[in-house]
Nucleic acid binder design. Structure first.
Lengths: 200, 200
DNA sequence: AGACCGATTGACTGGTCAGTCAACCAGCGA
DNA sequence: TCGCTGGTTGACTGACCAGTCAATCGGTCT
């Protein structure tokens, strides 16, 4: 027992350390030794648990993104109106950032927005999120709760893009990130996308 | 005269080659020798015109971004309604992509969305764009053409984020990029942001 | 002609790291 | 007690590449 438990701990320890270091320095400028140092383990141990430096990031992304995909699906299943569904999605993403800003920073900066390197690899999974959101919009159009002249894929990109830009703003301190801002953010994105900027 | 003109040509030649290579392979995985080869000049000449590989990208960004900033200011100056101003901004960005997709890909992927590396360096300039857009929104609110309960900075981020996400979708072929799509895009983003998804 | 000077060339160097590997250690079962 | 096994260690290597620099070229001016 004592031989298995610490093994799992070390793996987790390395992943958690990687989050911190990637968030601090960015993926490209972190050496594997930085991760090992931060985790308090030997250099070689990283390669015992992971095939490569890339795999560490892939693992972090996969873990988190699958949660997002589930959350979107659940929102779609349980939301009453399409607007509420979008609100749930926005709420989950904002909540993720609030709960673990470092991890979300890594996911967004190094994968989601890094479409040339890791984003490329994970495009199919990322796309799945876009598609699920588009599905919510499409359903809203069918039920007449959303206008029909805006392509669902298009709306999905705008919606997701708006949220991600917001997180990016928080991450790089372009816009203030207080608890109040987090609270408002969810409803504001949804208000912007569903109601629009012009008064009704 | 013949001693100065070719000099400028070579510099331009290197920049243009860099756009192609950066767009194809990404900044990190292009060697300086790739740029030189693509430009058909010797390795060392790149360093005659540029201090470093970074400076080549910086130059490309600076050139293009200053055009964007001017375009936003002009839109603000000459647009009749805030909505028309936003339309002009969206139009300029989409037009830039249409006119030179490779350059825009580089700008977005390597700078604007690469907030950890080059985005960091250029944050002040990038921010200036956000601010100018926010100003347009704020003016719209004062004149009563836009609702007042959405923070201008916030709206600006959503607007810009939506457009950039759209371009990113085109760049990585997540969404179709035909001439018709380009034509529609401008009005659709503006419709989404100003009118909202819900019917009026 | 010949001195001058900026443009141009590409071989070379120095430093950086990702990934390897042989050795070491700790607990457990025989 | 003595292997055995799997976690753990960290020095080392091989590849890669940004940036340097001394040499060359070609046009101009005197």
């Amino acid at each position: 027992m004592a031989s298995k438990a610490p093994a799992i701990d070390k793996r987790r320890q390395i992943l958690d350390a990687a989050i911190r270091v990637f968030a601090r320095q960015g993926f490209h400028s972190t050496r594997v030794s930085d991760i090992a140092d931060e985790a308090g383990v030997a250099y070689g141990l990283v390669y015992h648990y992971f095939k490569s430096k890339d795999e560490v990031l892939n693992e972090l992304f996969a873990e988190r993104w699958s949660l997002l995909l589930s959350a979107i699906e659940e929102a779609d299943r349980e939301g009453a109106s399409p607007r509420q569904k979008l609100e749930a999605v926005a709420g989950f993403i904002v909540g993720s950032y609030r709960h673990d800003p470092e991890l979300m920073k890594v996911i967004i900066v190094e994968v989601t927005r890094a479409a040339n390197s890791f984003g490329r690899t994970h495009l199919p999974e990322i796309r799945r999120a876009y598609d699920s959101i588009a599905k919510i919009v499409a359903e809203g159009q069918e039920s007449g709760e959303f206008r029909r002249d805006i392509d669902p894929t298009f709306a999905s990109m705008s919606f997701y893009g708006a949220i991600e830009q917001l997180l990016t703003g928080w991450i790089f301190e372009v816009i203030p990130a207080s608890d109040a801002d987090f609270d408002q953010a969810k409803s504001l994105v949804v208000a912007t996308i569903c109601d629009g900027l012009e008064p009704r």
